[in-house]
C-alpha cells in the first residue's frame, strides 16, 4: 500500500468525505462565511468594549478619529459608573437574587425530577408533561397578574419578589434537564441500595446526587444566567434604585432623556455582561449540554 493511499485513508477516517474538497473550494464555502458569521456575532461586543474606554471627544468626532480604534483610552466611564452611580449595588443585588433563585429552584427541581423520573407514582407522567408545558409559559403573559400578587403579598420593591418569581421559569427548566440526567443513571444502583436497606432520602443524597453532579452544574449555571438576564419581572416589581438589578438599573437610571452617556452605558453593559461571560467561559460544555439537552430530551 502506497503512502499516499494511507494518508487518504487517514484523512477519510478523521474527516468523512473532506478529502474530496480542494482547499480553495473550502476557503470559499466554509472559512469565508464562518469568519463573516463570527465577525457579525462578535462585533457588538467589540463596539461595547471600545466605546467603554473611549473619551467623549473621540466618540463623537468621526472626522479626526477612526471610530474603530481608540487613541487615548480612558477609565473615566468605568470610574464614573462604579463611584458615582448605584451600579455596584445593582451588581450585588443581581448576584444575590440570581444565586438565591437558582438555589431555591435547584432544590425544588432535584426532588421533583427524582420523584417524576424514579418513583413512578400515580400521575407522574402527567406531571412530567405539565412541567414541560410550564416551561413554555412566557413571562410576558404572567407579569401583570404577578405584579398584582406581588403587591398584595407586600413584596413589591423587595428582592423577595424576584427570588420567588424567578423559579416560575427556572423550576420547569431545571426539572426537565435533571429528569434527563437521572434517567441516564442505571436503575440497578438504586436497587442494590434498596436491598442494602437504604431509604429514598439516602439513595438520593448518597447515590443519585453524586452521580448527577454534571447535571446539577449544568442546571445551576444555566439557571443563574437566566436569572441574571431576566428583565421584565425586575422592571415591573422593583421601583427604588437601591433594589434594582443590573439590566434594569442600566436602562432606567443611566439613560437620561436629555443626553446619552454612551461611554457609561457601554461600560455598564460590559461590566454587567462580564460575570456571565466568565462563568460561561469556565463551563462551556455544561452550557451546551444544558441547552441541547433541554430540546433533545
Amino acid at each position: 500500500m502506497s503512502s499516499a493511499d494511507t494518508t487518504a485513508r487517514a484523512a477519510g477516517d478523521s474527516g468523512g468525505m473532506r478529502y474530496l474538497d480542494s482547499l480553495p473550494r473550502r476557503v470559499v464555502t466554509v472559512y469565508v462565511p464562518l469568519v463573516l458569521f463570527v465577525f457579525v456575532l462578535l462585533f457588538p461586543f467589540y463596539w461595547m468594549a471600545i466605546t467603554a474606554v473611549k473619551p467623549n471627544n473621540e466618540m463623537t468626532n468621526f472626522n479626526q478619529f477612526n471610530p474603530f480604534w481608540v487613541v487615548a483610552p480612558t477609565l473615566d466611564h468605568i470610574r464614573y459608573l462604579l463611584l458615582e452611580t448605584s451600579y455596584p449595588g445593582w451588581l450585588w443585588n443581581t448576584t444575590l437574587i440570581a444565586a438565591a433563585a437558582t438555589f431555591l429552584s435547584l432544590i425544588a427541581s432535584v426532588f421533583a425530577a427524582y420523584a417524576i423520573e424514579r418513583m413512578r407514582f400515580s400521575g407522574s407522567r402527567q406531571i412530567g408533561l405539565g412541567i414541560f408545558l410550564a416551561y413554555l409559559v412566557p413571562p410576558s403573559i404572567l407579569f401583570i397578574p404577578l405584579a398584582l400578587m406581588v403587591f398584595s403579598l407586600g413584596l413589591y420593591d423587595t428582592k423577595f419578589a424576584l427570588i420567588l418569581t424567578y423559579p416560575t421559569f427556572l423550576v420547569p427548566f431545571c426539572t426537565w434537564l435533571l429528569m434527563g440526567y437521572f434517567r441516564s443513571i442505571p436503575f440497578e444502583l438504586e436497587e442494590c441500595a434498596l436491598i442494602d436497606g437504604a431509604s429514598r432520602w439516602q439513595i438520593l443524597t448518597r447515590i443519585i446526587l453524586p452521580l448527577a453532579v454534571p447535571g446539577l452544574i449544568s442546571a445551576g449555571i444555566f439557571a443563574f444566567t437566566l436569572s441574571w438576564n431576566e428583565f421584565i419581572y425586575a422592571l415591573t416589581f422593583i421601583q427604588s434604585s437601591e433594589n434594582k438589578t443590573v439590566p434594569v438599573g442600566v436602562l432606567t437610571e443611566l439613560v437620561r432623556s436629555d443626553v446619552y452617556e454612551w461611554g457609561a452605558l457601554m461600560a455598564g453593559a460590559l461590566v454587567g455582561s462580564l460575570p456571565v461571560v466568565i462563568l460561561y467561559s469556565f463551563f462551556v460544555e455544561y452550557y451546551v449540554s444544558s441547552m441541547t439537552g433541554a430540546v433533545k430530551e
Binding site: L41, F45, F231, V246, G268, G272, S273, V284
Partner: peptide, 16 residues
C-alpha cells in the same frame, strides 16, 4: 464564541 450573543443579557446587548 458563537454562543456568546445568547449568553450575554439581552438588555445589555440591546443597549449596544
Amino acid at each position: 464564541i458563537v454562543l456568546l450573543p445568547w449568553v450575554v443579557p439581552t438588555v445589555l446587548s440591546a443597549i449596544a
